[in-house]
Design a protein around this nucleic acid. Structure first.
Lengths: 250, 250
DNA sequence: AAGTGGTCTAGACCACTAA
DNA sequence: TAGTGGTCTAGACCACTTC
């Protein structure tokens, strides 16, 4: 370094950061449009009068920002003009999905094997006529009205869950499947809507029929996108709130 | 490198990766428990018979995994025994928050300056007596009943938003604030609950009073945790669903 | 065969932290 | 003041891609 060496730490900003910012600017301004190839490290070394290591540190920053992709032999390709700033919600475990105001254990009310009809098939996203294991349960503390009624559908392949769920009422069924069968949940799709709680469920929840409630449906899928488990929960108004915090990335 | 140099690329795995894996193993096995300090780079250089650059590359991997935190002067502290695998939801923009089935433009019904009373203060998380700019609007396509009624509260400091929001009915108020005032939203807290829609709102939404609906409250905060904007939306059952997908990390 | 990015070394100066 | 991690250089060999 020579030209830059005259005021090396003048601005308390590192050389490789200045280089990466300059390159980011050139990319944003269209000097290096998306899809084009950036000059080779050797060239940048001369352009910025810096060592290869420093240039690589700069390029690494751009890589972390998702602006470039590098491949040995080919070169450095611009894959985005601007760093994407999104929002994200992060949960440390599936348990965080169920953010009940009070810790509320599950009480299993009924377990049965069911054959899915047309309506249920549409919701589960599987062919009608297939068999599933259905757990019906409530959640809530003793003495108080329950905060939820849940119908949970599990692949009949996991019959052992029937016994396990009774032995561990405090654990999530998805956790039990993961632990005992090694089937790992890779994604959870979740839909929240408002409903008038149907009479049979309302009776269990000790609210008037057709009173307002949250309906939360969840689909638990493995890596291949295969449905492993699905659930359908009713929460009476006032007893449950679903809250999340989204954090801006970067 | 000497001991390792005899079969440098024998396993197509880099030296620094092998070092980082070994260190990760030692951390997981409790040789370096969480909270303790890892040996200095200089020491690791001797232990693994590698250059400092290589050791640093290994430590960088551990840093990316979230296992260690480094500080100049102090040292390298173990902050986790295992890489954390959580679930995350990612949104490319705030607009994704509002995942309406149909694209539904906003119609501003009323704008006024209000002084918050006790009840509103508790919700907004600000002192009672302060003044806020209140936007009331509906969302929905022409000809059909609206899908939402929203009350939105903005700091009176951003009076210009009043004009901007009318000029850009298709844009989010939070975006307008960010663009014209440079105040950047860093996080959004969101709470979803079920309600019986109150009569005045029900009338605007063209549903019977006290019919079931979703109540979504959002608080938009800046980096310092200061409230910039807050909203409160009513969605009649059947016209709106809130859905998210959570992806397991790593 | 030429050029690319990936890995690695040996050595230097610096800013920061803690005793 | 001694030791830490952060930055930077100059040079080397390698694996991979492309022509």
């Amino acid at each position: 370094m020579e030209a830059v060496a005259d005021f090396p730490y003048a601005m308390s900003i590192t050389l490789y950061t200045r280089i990466s910012e300059e390159l980011a600017r050139l990319i944003a301004n269209g000097v290096y449009p998306v899809g084009t190839v950036l000059p080779a490290e050797h060239t940048l070394t001369e352009q910025f009068d810096a060592s290869r290591h420093t240039v690589r540190a700069a390029l690494r920053q751009l890589q972390d920002l998702g602006l470039i992709a590098r491949r040995r032999g080919s070169g450095t390709v611009v894959i985005a003009a601007r760093p994407k700033a999104g929002f994200s919600q992060s949960l440390s475990s599936l348990e965080d999905l169920v953010q009940l105001a009070v810790r509320s254990p599950r009480t299993i009310k009924q377990v049965q094997e069911v054959v899915v009809d047309i309506e249920l098939a549409a919701y589960l996203g599987v062919g009608p006529g297939t068999r599933w294991l259905k757990f019906s349960s409530t959640r809530g503390v003793d003495g108080a009205p329950p905060v939820a009624w849940t119908d949970l559908y599990v692949d009949t392949h996991y019959k052992g869950v029937r016994k396990l769920a009774r032995e561990h009422p405090d654990r999530l069924v998805s956790d039990l499947i993961e632990e005992h069968y090694g089937r790992r949940i890779a994604s959870v799709e979740q839909t929240i809507s408002a409903v008038a709680i149907p009479a049979p469920v309302a009776k269990e929840l000790e609210v008037p029929a057709d009173s307002p409630g949250l309906l939360i449906r969840r689909q638990y899928k493995d890596q291949a996108g295969q449905l492993v488990e699905a659930s359908c929960s009713y929460h009476p108004a006032g007893r449950y709130e679903f809250s999340t915090t989204l954090i801006r990335e970067q």
